[in-house]
Design a protein around this nucleic acid. Structure first.
Lengths: 127, 127
DNA sequence: TTCCATGCAAATCGTTTGCATAAAC
DNA sequence: GTTTATGCAAACGATTTGCATGGAA
């Protein structure tokens, strides 16, 4: 049976109120600033724990560290592959049609409502 | 001006004929088996070069090493986050509507036609 | 009083980099 | 001849792990 530690709660609390898709490092720094005793190892262990439970989402980036997002209402992610900024957006991907297309062609059975679109943002295009 | 080395061509040739979304390590092993002199550093440098050119796509995984895919006709990727298998599938995401949804809500201007859906495959669900 | 979670540090993994040499053009 | 790419090995960043200890149930 799992145990509800102070540290795990501090990590989750921060993610719930955060809208910036922070990295593990950023989570660590922020909760430290607030007085948490959590070590970096504990932060990583809990981020993995929470994402395996489906409470948060681990977002893998093309460059740099993973980012984490608390799963409120379903939404999608548009990611700039240059500067690694993650944006939320809503879009109806017609889940039923999509499910059909995927299960017909692949072995994927269950899939996330959080779809990832990669792109380049205004700022990075200018460069 | 860029130069077309033997090693770069060997790496690209292998990706063109591969349908398995190989990792850098797998690319390295396979071209070595075929007699290439390419070092691992060269493999990484060329995979980055080719993906910056938009010739191949770098696919970041939730766990484990990145995978690479030669960009033939547009298609999407369904990824099992447990076993890291990448499947191809076709689906009409209504690019115009999607573009509108994204540019209205985010700073992303240009985006890839290769959309990523994360899920769990049949085999891993059973476990 | 059991067993899960922690803190710490070392280890690991995937990838990048510096530098001297070799190959394209 | 000039410049870009290579091979090698060392360095790097992000993450995981082993182990002894502490805290929840």
């Amino acid at each position: 049976m799992e145990k509800n530690s102070k540290q795990r709660q501090e990590i989750l609390d921060f993610l719930i109120e955060s809208y910036s898709h922070p990295t593990a490092e950023e989570v660590y720094n922020e909760i430290k600033k607030r007085g948490s005793t959590a070590s970096k190892g504990t932060v990583y262990r809990n981020l993995n724990f929470l994402s395996e439970k489906g409470i948060i989402e681990k977002i893998s980036m093309q460059n740099g560290p993973d980012r984490y997002d608390y799963l409120k209402t379903p939404h999608n992610h548009a990611i700039c592959v240059k500067c690694n900024t993650v944006y939320d957006f809503e879009y109806d991907f017609s889940p039923k049609k999509l499910k059909k297309a995927i299960t017909e062609k692949t072995d994927i059975e269950e899939f996330s409502n959080y779809i990832i679109v990669q792109g380049i943002c205004k700022k990075c295009l200018g460069k």
